[in-house]
Design a protein around this nucleic acid. Sequence first.
DNA 1: TCAAAGCTTGCGGATTTCGCAGAAGTGGCC
DNA 2: GGCCACTTCTGCGAAATCCGCAAGCTTTGA
Lengths: 172, 172
Amino acid sequence: MHSERVASRSADQRDSSRESRNGTPTLDAVSLAIIQQLQEDGRRPYAAIGKAVGLSEAAVRQRVQKLLDQGVMQIVAVTDPLTVGFRRQAMVGIHVEGDVESIADTLTAMSEVEYVVMTAGSFDILAEIVCEDDDHLLDVINKRIRALPGVRSTESFVYMKLKKQTYMWGTR
Amino acid sequence: MHSERVASRSADQRDSSRESRNGTPTLDAVSLAIIQQLQEDGRRPYAAIGKAVGLSEAAVRQRVQKLLDQGVMQIVAVTDPLTVGFRRQAMVGIHVEGDVESIADTLTAMSEVEYVVMTAGSFDILAEIVCEDDDHLLDVINKRIRALPGVRSTESFVYMKLKKQTYMWGTR
DNA sequence: TCAAAGCTTGCGGATTTCGCAGAAGTGGCC
DNA sequence: GGCCACTTCTGCGAAATCCGCAAGCTTTGA
């Protein structure tokens, strides 16, 4: 029955996660395959995943739990906020003087901010904001973000229509 | 035992989804609560969700299935691509002349493009790109995106570090 | 008044989850 | 080589969950 299981396990299948230099775990091929399965369907049973990646049900369960605990992945429901009552969304590009990371941390702490990334472009930070209406959005941008010490200037891109939102890099 | 269930069901609990003017379903409070539960844990059992939102297990199951079928939400594994072998990510701002939506559709069809949104800011479109390395990224931006008829100019913001990525609007 | 929707309760069977014990592979160390 | 600590995988019951289905109820809307 184990027809597809190779006799001696190759080296890169062990060591499913280890701390690399920058602190983020390095993933092996099996864990990647598991993540890919869960990108297609976050509720797929462990046994089905095991069959697909060549592991037992229990092993898949352990790996998934570890990936969740480590924060490597999360299994969640994703929606288009516009269909769920949040009328205004925007991407805000921010020019910073001084410590970029501390500003990013401050943004991260705001509940209206769903996404924060430090970039190498003309903006130092991009932050995505989800609000209930125009007033709320205006308030967050003008009163909360622009007021931060170190924020030199901002530029806003209000969302009109979300066209694509996927998490399927694994299936390429 | 039904202590928390109100005797007569209030009006907004019915009509869990109806087509609104723009074609996107309107969601009632119960469906929002269900989505919120699944934003915290995409694998939470239906019975537990039912207890939290005041519905039976079977009803939750039906609602979740419908929300998935309608495309209102998806339950998936989400990762930081940088920890999973994709070395280069970028947000690309695009200036378009002519039909913005058709350009957006073209971008949507590209597998390297994970996120496409039409905006009201100085860019007409923002697109997030996930690539394996610099060459790949350069190729996508210069050869595939800038080459599109209707694309006047682009500006790229290469990701250095992802600081936040949540889907927790429901918990506010 | 009638049909359609949606929810509830209840049910059993199939499936999945979960915890745990034991086996197997690895790396460090003498 | 040989031993030990550690991690990972497997196998296996027990418990919980999922799933389809049916009957009855209420509300909505034609």
